[in-house]
């Protein structure tokens, strides 16, 4: 645990659920564990419903809006526990140290406000020098928007998807955050625009040392831009490690994800898919939640009441598989 105290953010044994007055609490995330260092770019992969977005919402304080709450564990951001922050505490935190770029570029910006007005909102808590107008222009320059004066006066519906996402990134950067969370920032964008947005994120990180959490379905993309990767499955972290380490996966789910990559598939060969589908929230099996889909399954995989924890030292290559010895040689 030596290095962990120097990290920017720790997610420790995080459990998130939606309490219900009559029925049982619906668990969305259980056993989420990972860290992110200063200036690091962390990729987060997993199928829909694996709890990626929920984990991120716990970092920006928007769980309550969806009726969800942190049940156990911690989200330590520079020694502040975000997981149990009160609403009044959030009032101070929001719009400052953590920036957020939402999933859908088209629906991200407020449709009834001009770009200028939105940047002004984002700049409320900024301590940088210069008037709001100067700072706004600087931010749009930063995200490589040209014709800044034109764009400032426009409404989001007058901009293309890529431009809107650039604006959202500019807004997220307004408070000079230490951490930027980008939740599938390129969903619904053209491939060329996607790569431009990715280049932009890389530039931002290089220039300002901003740590970035990049949520994506796209393993190839994560390989390309990230330092480390967190693999989520059914609400749990199943594997954490550097991009290089994950090239030799230690969890069957990661292996399966790797095999189903389109970018490295042999031309003409049949595409590999993962067996079955991810267990839905509320229907998680006992023990390892991947066991039912796993080709390496052993008898003891489903025995324990809980999902296996991450084995190995925090910060190293960790996996939540009970039988990593069986995976040798698999890719």
């Amino acid at each position: 645990m030596t290095s962990s105290s120097h990290k920017l953010l720790h997610v420790v044994d995080l459990k998130i659920g939606i309490p219900h007055p009559r029925r049982e609490t619906l668990i969305m995330v259980d056993n989420a564990n990972f860290d992110i260092g200063y200036g690091e770019m962390l990729g987060m992969v997993g199928e829909s419903g694996s709890g990626k977005t929920m984990v991120c919402r716990s970092m920006i304080g928007t769980l309550e809006r969806r009726g969800a709450t942190v049940l156990e564990g911690q989200v330590l951001f520079e020694d502040q526990d975000l997981a149990h922050a009160s609403e009044s505490h959030w009032k101070k935190l929001r719009g400052k140290a953590i920036g957020y770029v939402p999933q859908s570029a088209l629906a991200g910006p407020n449709p009834v406000l001009t770009i200028q007005a939105q940047l002004a909102e984002a700049l409320q808590k900024s301590e940088a020098k210069g008037s709001i107008a100067e700072q706004s222009k600087r931010l749009l320059d930063l995200v490589k928007i040209r014709r800044v004066d034109t764009v400032l006066k426009q409404y989001p519906n007058q901009l293309s998807g890529g431009m809107r996402q650039r604006v959202m990134i500019a807004c997220a950067l307004a408070s000079e955050p230490k951490l930027l969370i980008a939740d599938e920032p390129t969903t619904g964008l053209d491939v060329t625009v996607q790569s431009q947005i990715m280049e932009l994120l890389k530039d931002i990180r290089r220039e300002f040392g901003t740590a970035i959490i990049l949520i994506s379905h796209d393993l190839a993309l994560i390989d390309d831009v990230c330092d480390r990767v967190v693999v989520m499955h059914a609400g749990a972290t199943v594997e954490v490690g550097s991009v290089a380490q994950l090239a030799v996966p230690r969890h069957p789910y990661t292996i399966a994800l790797n095999q189903s990559r389109i970018d490295i598939a042999e031309p003409g060969s049949e595409l590999v898919t993962i067996l079955g589908s991810a267990p839905s929230v509320g229907e998680w099996p006992l023990g390892c939640r991947f066991a039912a889909r796993c080709i390496f399954r052993q008898n003891d995989c489903s025995l324990g009441a809980n999902h296996p924890p991450l084995f190995g030292e925090r910060g190293s290559h960790q996996s939540a598989c009970l039988h990593t010895e069986l995976l040798k040689g698999a890719k």
Binding site: G61, Y100, A107, N110, E121, Q124
Partner: peptide
């Protein structure tokens, strides 16, 4: 249900502004 409402929450805009603009 729209995503931009979340953006307003995250930016920490004032209550009145949130109710009106978002």
């Amino acid at each position: 249900d729209e995503e931009f409402v979340e953006t307003g929450v995250i930016r920490g805009v004032s209550k009145i502004r949130f109710y009106w603009s978002y």
